[in-house]
Design a protein around this nucleic acid. Structure first.
Lengths: 226, 226
DNA sequence: CCAAAAGTGTTGAAACTACACCCATGG
DNA sequence: CCATGGGTGTAGTTTCAACACTTTTGG
């Protein structure tokens, strides 16, 4: 039909969160080839004819970073400016992902993949700094009205951890009591009747996110909002 | 580099609004060729190598519908499922647009383009019903936190028209006094000190949206929300 | 003068903010 | 017993929701 030479790629902005350090991070790879050789960049690459966009994101991310588990993924935006890739016209569908940081670390060294604190990123290839900035804005918006913050914590977490996560990502303080009260009123956290261990102070209670209950409430017209 | 055969297209969901009838509409075209010949579909088509995605949307929309003025455009989502186009793998970047309905009508007949009420759409080609449904959800969300509803009205409009627009799009009633009070408190409407004409009852005052003032307020941390 | 839609204030309920003390644990 | 962070209630303020009558115009 029409013969165009536009190449289609995907890019992944994978967010991780260090609970102890209260730090939001992004997973980047060091480019092995030109253009932008040796610069840090988002994982990503060409989409194959027979794979969906999400499959392409997952495949490229795993190949390039050694990530094992599958992150929660959401489509961010499609970048199509004329000169964003010096090799020729390239349109990239960006997805952002959230993952519990514990679930990788291991295999990344050989592949030159590395977590970077969001506030201390390397110089990035292509228009990737703009993409990351967009992803961060989206993440900040989305955690206020969708319960996706849990994806960055483990299956079990404490309320103070959740509190810190929100404060870190949104860059502002929430009164502890008001925050807890609001979250508890949603009634989507399940008390596991366990305490955290290994802390030199009063241990906090552990909770998990009850996805089933959340879905039920959504169907009944419930809206989550922080 | 990698040799893939993925075709890149754009699709446009152009929304219009009939003030008198209080009806939200979408601009569709009748397909001239297979596949889905003679079915109604969203305007759209292949992206050229040397045009941006937005330019492609505008070009295709104008060519296929005879639309003269340029609609307000926002990227919606990118659709990339494997079998969405029977001709082969096609990824489509969808944009939704808002336009003052008065600004076309004329030249559409020859081209077989037509406005359809959102609640009474034809059977649609491809996955276009899903795309429209997504666009409508996005529009409903967006008008609650961005002042884009004005794009559907003329430069001059009355508060009751704005009130009806919100009620129509969101499918629910707003108390008239509370709605007006809220909007007035935002202080982004400029009273033109004119009255509407040709109505058989008390004429309403005309206003315009003060974009400059809105931008100023945004920079000062103001958030619009209905 | 009549019909139709515009315009305008107040009150009670609900949600939000700010704030301080005691408790459980490890060292 | 000390340091550290966890856990909890209340009161004042602000925002939100509900509600009805008078005004202006064209016919």
């Amino acid at each position: 039909m029409v013969d165009n030479n536009i190449k289609l790629t995907v890019d992944a902005i994978i967010f991780g969160y260090l609970i102890q350090e209260k730090e939001l991070q992004i997973l980047l790879i060091k480019r092995k080839y030109e253009p932008f050789k040796d610069m840090w960049a988002l994982p990503g690459g060409y989409v194959k004819d027979d794979e969906s966009l999400e499959d392409a994101v997952l495949r490229e991310t795993k190949e390039e970073t050694g990530l094992i588990d599958e992150p929660y993924l959401d489509q961010l935006y499609t970048y199509g400016d004329l000169n964003r890739d010096p090799r020729g016209r390239t349109v990239s569908v960006a997805y952002y992902g959230l993952i519990n940081t514990k679930k990788l670390t291991a295999s990344t060294d050989a592949l030159e993949a590395k977590w970077f604190p969001i506030n201390d990123l390397a110089n990035l290839a292509f228009d990737h700094d703009k993409i990351i900035s967009d992803a961060l804005i989206r993440l900040r918006n989305k955690i206020t009205y969708q319960p996706i913050g849990f994806e960055l914590l483990g299956d079990k977490f404490t309320i103070p951890q959740l509190h810190s996560l929100y404060q870190t990502i949104l860059g502002k303080e929430f009164d502890r009591r008001n925050f807890i009260r609001k979250f508890k009123k949603f009634n989507i956290l399940e008390d596991l009747n366990e305490k955290e261990t290994g802390v030199p102070n009063k241990p906090a209670s552990l909770f998990k996110f009850n996805k089933v209950k959340y879905q039920e409430k959504i169907e009944q017209g419930f809206y989550f909002e922080i």
